[in-house]
Design a protein around this nucleic acid. Structure first.
Lengths: 250, 250
DNA sequence: AATAATGAGTTGCATTTGAAACCTATATAT
DNA sequence: ATATATAGGTTTCAAATGCAACTCATTATT
C-alpha cells in the first residue's frame, strides 16, 4: 500500500472513530510506529488532524476542517482542476466550504498576483501565510461555527465589485430545485455575491449530488460550470450538460 | 513563588529566548518537571505558547499572539478593568491589538447578550467559541499579518452602526500629536470607526506612553478615557486629565 | 549499464510524556 | 472546633516520542 493511500485511509478511519492510537494504526497497516508517526506528522502539517501523546484526532472542533479531512484527496484534486481556469493577476470571489478552502490555497500557491474576495474568515486565515496574495474579506454578521460573514452588510460590501469567476460549494442538488444549501442566511448571501460575478462555478465532491439541502441556493440556470469527481450520477451529469453547464471531472 | 508569578516569568523568559526546555525551567524555578509541564499546559490552553517535545516556544508566528504573551498579566488586568464599564446587552466596537483581544474575550465571557463589532478577524476567531456572543465582522482589505480589515470598505460597513463605546489600542503617544499608530491604513480605519461611536476608549499597557508611532491615530480631544497600568508617566497622566480624559489605572 | 540521489520504511535508544497515587497547606462548610 | 474540599506540588513508572543510523527499492543521471 502506498503512503498516500494510507494517509487517505487514516483520515477515513478518523472520520469514523474520532480518535485512534498510534499503536493501533501500526497494527492495522502492518508498518512500524515510526512510520505511522511520520504519516500523522504530515497530516498534522496539512492542518487535517491534531496529534496528542499516543494518538491522533480529527481537527473536528472546526466545522470546515472536519469536512476537509473527509474525502480529502478527492477534494484536493477537484481544487487542482478548478484552479486551472484561473490565470495570474486575476481577481476572483470564493465562498466558504472545504473544496473552496482547498481551491483558495491552491490558487494562492500556484498563481501570481491573485486577489481573493471572500466572506470566509476561515479562508482568509487559511491562505494568509502565502505571500503576495491579496485578500478582500467581506464583512457582515459572523457565524461563529462556520467563520463566515452573512447578511445585508455582505451584500453592501460585495456590490463594490464585479468579477469574472465566483467559486461556491453546495450542500445538495436536485433537478427541480437546482443547487441547495443548509443555511438560509448563507444561501442568501451566496445569491447576493453571485450577482456580482459573470461566471458561477460550483466546486464539490460528487456525494452532494445524492443529497438535497433544506433551502434553495442557486437555480441551475445561474451556474456556469461544475467541477467534481467522476462519481457524479450519470443522470445529474447529463441533466447539467443539457442545461448548458460545463461539467469537469477529475 | 506563586504559580501565576511563575507563569509570568516563563512568558518573560520566552519573549527573550524563543525556546526553553522543560528541564531548564525546572532547574530555574526549583520545581519538578511535572509542575513545569502543568504550567506550560495551562499557558498553551490560553493560546500563549506552543509546546513541543521537551520544550516550549512562543506562539510568535502570529503577530498579535506574540504581543499577547508580552506583559500578559498586566494586559489581562487592564482588560478586566476596561470591561467593568460594559453592561449586559450592549453593542460595542473593538479594534485590533492585544489588549483589545483580551478585552473582547473578557467581555464575551462575563457579560450577557453582547454584540461585538470589529474589523479584526483575529478577535472574531478569538471569541467565537464563547456561546451567545454575536459578532459583526467588518470587511475590507485584509492585512495578512495582523488579520485586520482596513480601507474604504470598512468605512462603508461601519457607517451602518452607531455605538456608545469604541475600544482601541495604540502604538504611541505624545502631547503634540496625541495617540499615534504604526500603520497608515489601520490608523485611517480607526478614525473612520471612531466617527461611529460616542466614546473612544484607549486600552493599552503603559509602555506605549514612552513611544511615538509613525502616523497620527487620533488626537487627544477625540478620546473619552484611557485604561492602562500604574506605570504611566506622571506627566502623561496629568496632561490627559487636564484635557478632560478619564484615566483608569489597575 | 553503472552510479548517484531520493523516498519510504525499519530498528534501537535515550529522553520526554501522561496518568495516577500521594502529600500538604489553605480555604469552606458544618 | 472539626471535617472536607480544593489548589499546588511531588514521586514514580509504563508508554510514547524524536533522532540518528541503517535498509531497500525506485527514479534520475551520466
Amino acid at each position: 500500500m502506498k503512503m498516500s493511500e494510507r494517509h487517505t485511509k487514516i483520515l477515513d478511519l478518523l472520520t469514523k472513530e474520532e480518535k485512534i492510537e498510534v499503536a493501533k494504526l501500526s497494527n492495522i497497516f502492518r508498518v512500524s510506529q515510526v512510520t505511522i508517526r511520520k504519516d500523522l506528522d504530515q497530516l498534522e502539517n496539512k492542518g487535517l488532524i491534531m496529534r496528542e501523546h499516543g494518538f491522533a484526532t480529527l481537527n473536528s472542533k472546526d466545522d470546515i476542517n472536519n469536512r476537509l479531512a473527509y474525502n480529502y484527496d478527492i477534494k484536493q484534486k477537484i481544487a487542482q482542476l478548478a484552479s486551472e481556469d484561473v490565470h495570474d493577476g486575476e481577481t476572483l470571489m470564493i465562498e466558504s466550504g472545504s473544496c473552496c478552502a482547498l481551491l483558495a490555497l491552491q490558487i494562492a500557491q500556484t498563481k501570481k498576483d491573485i486577489t481573493i474576495i471572500t466572506n470566509s474568515a476561515f479562508i482568509a486565515d487559511y491562505v494568509r501565510k502565502i505571500p503576495q496574495t491579496k485578500i478582500i474579506l467581506l464583512g457582515g454578521e459572523y457565524q461563529n461555527e462556520s467563520q463566515v460573514s452573512v447578511g445585508p452588510i455582505v451584500k453592501k460590501c460585495v456590490e463594490t465589485f464585479y468579477v469574472d469567476k465566483f467559486f461556491i460549494g453546495t450542500d445538495g442538488f436536485s433537478e427541480v430545485s437546482g443547487f441547495t444549501g443548509n443555511d438560509y442566511m448563507r444561501s442568501e448571501t451566496v445569491r447576493d455575491m453571485a450577482k456580482q460575478a459573470k461566471q458561477v462555478i460550483v466546486v464539490t465532491d460528487s456525494s452532494k449530488f445524492n443529497q438535497i439541502g433544506v433551502v434553495n441556493l442557486l437555480p441551475t440556470q445561474n451556474i456556469t460550470s461544475v467541477v467534481t469527481d467522476n462519481n457524479i450520477p450519470n443522470c445529474c451529469e447529463s441533466y447539467l450538460i443539457e442545461q448548458g453547464i460545463t461539467v469537469k471531472k477529475i
